[in-house]
Design a protein around this nucleic acid. Structure first.
Lengths: 207, 207, 207, 207
DNA sequence: CCCTAAACGAGACGGTACGTCTAGTCTTATG
DNA sequence: CATAAGACTAGACGTACCGTCTCGTTTAGGG
């Protein structure tokens, strides 16, 4: 497959790529992703539903995975609600509970898992997933930690990454393995444990 | 697809199924799983490498996923080392460090993720994954908790499930998303945080 | 493309190729050839009409051209009538008139031209066309010449090839270029001219 | 497809059609015709080689076939040499030998066959082929017959069409089917046979 | 010791989807 | 307004696998 990416800043020649097209393709892909999941999302069907030639899809997206990521982002980002509580534990709870609401038993959740699996092999997809999903989420969560530091709840050099991994990791695990439900009791306890660890300085950088 | 499962205890008629066959298939599947990952494991290639007809594979395994699970188990179980330390934190550390050694940057790790993704759609695979991978692991870990209870380190009605999710979840997350390395500093801090939470009774059942 | 042709006389292994299949494909191809001509005969449509996978077609025929040749043969050979007259001119007339009836304004005629054009590029098709269409026709015509020799109408070492080219060439030309009709007056005159040339020994070998 | 044909004689508005363009297109088409033959001449490649938009080609030529005919004409006409001998047979021989030299084993010959095949389906191409290739050739050949009539070699009401079909038909046949070579012995005998037929009045109109 | 019946290898079968290519049309900016 | 460039819809190309099937060939019991 060949995807030409413009590098120079010459004047663009020929017919410009249609944004209508891109939107039709994304919304078709999004539909299929919800109905059938990532595994059964085929370029052929996206093209048919969007009334678009297959070449137009290949012209705009390098791989099926990256197309699916774009389609996934629409729903995933829209549903992420920001929250601000009085204590770190409250913030942690609402962040995790919000995520659980979006992914537990939903098409979005299944799509997320499918993308993660695909990203193990499609390295470009992995990179984009980190840049476009993980990094923005972490940036948004940084504020939560900073406010807790400002309140004096936790040490100033607390490592955001470890704390967020401790918070979301257990939930990812239950989402993936399905061995236990993502109940609100679970969310509450995880938030409490993470808050405790943070307060006790387990996550400070120079440990 | 039709897989006949014998229920009655009649005498088996005809040529018995060959265990040589099963082994050849499993080892071919295992090879491919390591070389190319779950996504690129095709029945066609397994059959060719094992010098076996495709029907023989379909006769013995319901789906590609379950075949891959069987192939995966060989490596995954062999490499799981049991450990017994002096404190809960030591035990948690060695358990997590052992798991990380098996999956971080290894074919086994990539296979694990592929299987988890497939299990979102192949429900039977999900069930078998829980029964044959998750459940035995948890059973093995139960001893670790019980010894900590016996030593008086943690409350007696501590919930194993939450504790193990707290321990392994963050590592799964880093394995999946690759946003941060599975360093030994990471493992150490996670073990410390989980031990702390356990001691403080965050995971007791009636919370 | 890869088409395996058996050369050795080993026992055949695996499922034998289905003749039903071959027949269904040929009759679908024949239909399309008549309806739309060689240019618009696509493997895709043959497969669809014959309720057959595309791979089955590619497994049995090297190229679209050779498939079309096989389909063409059915009609072309069936319609070739043998004739025996009292004089060479009568024989020549009935041979040419028979051919004209089969190809003038018929799907078979258009198919013939399409195959000839394709054969300019598909050398294997050209070879098979000569072996399976031209050579048998010439063999059948040889009898006509031999009888004329036996009757003493023409010299004994008359060259069949030249005579037949003189007979059919003009008709091919009108078929191809369509500049003049393939009328029965035309057929009559051509037969007379060829008979005359033959009698006068224009086609003897050592000329 | 839509081809706008100007009927009125209004003053032309806007940028005039470039003749440079037409030439670039024709010479690109001619190149490809020689390299790959008619079957593999694609509008896409012509446009690319001529540094021309595809629309410009469609604006100037109705079909691929007619473009190819235009490209073909350049070579075909250039190479047709006129000849004048002392007898009809000499004239016939030199006419046929000249044609054979142009088409036997040459790209021009293969292009000729491709065009003839295409013309079976593209009726407009067939018409243009007759008007621009066949008709001028016959007009040129008329002189040969008239001179033979003037010399008293052949009857005055000899049918040019039949005679030329008898002359060129056999050569077309060998060109198409390739069953026998277009040797000079072949050309000589055909010329002799046609001259004989003409002398004997086989081609007179009221036969 | 043959008979029976299922398992075996091989690979053909009807399908689906792949990623590429070309057709013929449409839409920009440029001349 | 013609042009070069190239994006657009449409659909065929030849390939790779899917899961099923149909062969001829083993390979065990049970008669």
């Amino acid at each position: 497959m060949i995807v030409t990416v413009k590098v120079t800043n010459e004047a663009p020649r020929g017919r410009p790529r249609s944004s209508q097209c891109r939107e039709a393709i994304l919304s078709a892909a999004s539909e299929i992703l919800k109905e059938k999941g990532f595994r059964d999302l085929t370029i052929e069907e996206v093209a048919a539903r969007a009334h678009v030639g297959k070449a137009t899809i290949y012209r705009n997206w390098e791989t099926r995975g990256i197309l699916a990521l774009d389609a996934f982002m629409v729903d995933y980002l829209l549903l992420q609600p920001p929250q601000r509580g009085a204590t770190l534990e409250e913030d942690l709870f609402s962040a995790l509970a919000g995520w659980v609401a979006v992914v537990d038993g939903t098409p979005t959740g299944r799509a997320l898992v499918g993308l993660l699996a695909e990203a193990q092999f499609d390295l470009e997809l992995g990179k984009q997933f980190r840049d476009r999903v993980v990094a923005p989420a972490r940036a948004a969560q940084r504020d939560m930690i900073e406010r807790a530091v400002a309140r004096g709840e936790i040490p100033p050099d607390t490592d955001l990454e470890i704390l967020m991994d401790l918070l979301f990791g257990p939930a990812y695990l239950r989402l993936l393995e399905g061995h236990q439900p993502l109940s609100s009791a679970f969310v509450r306890r995880i938030a409490r444990a993470v808050a405790l660890a943070a307060r006790e300085g387990v996550a400070v950088r120079d440990l």
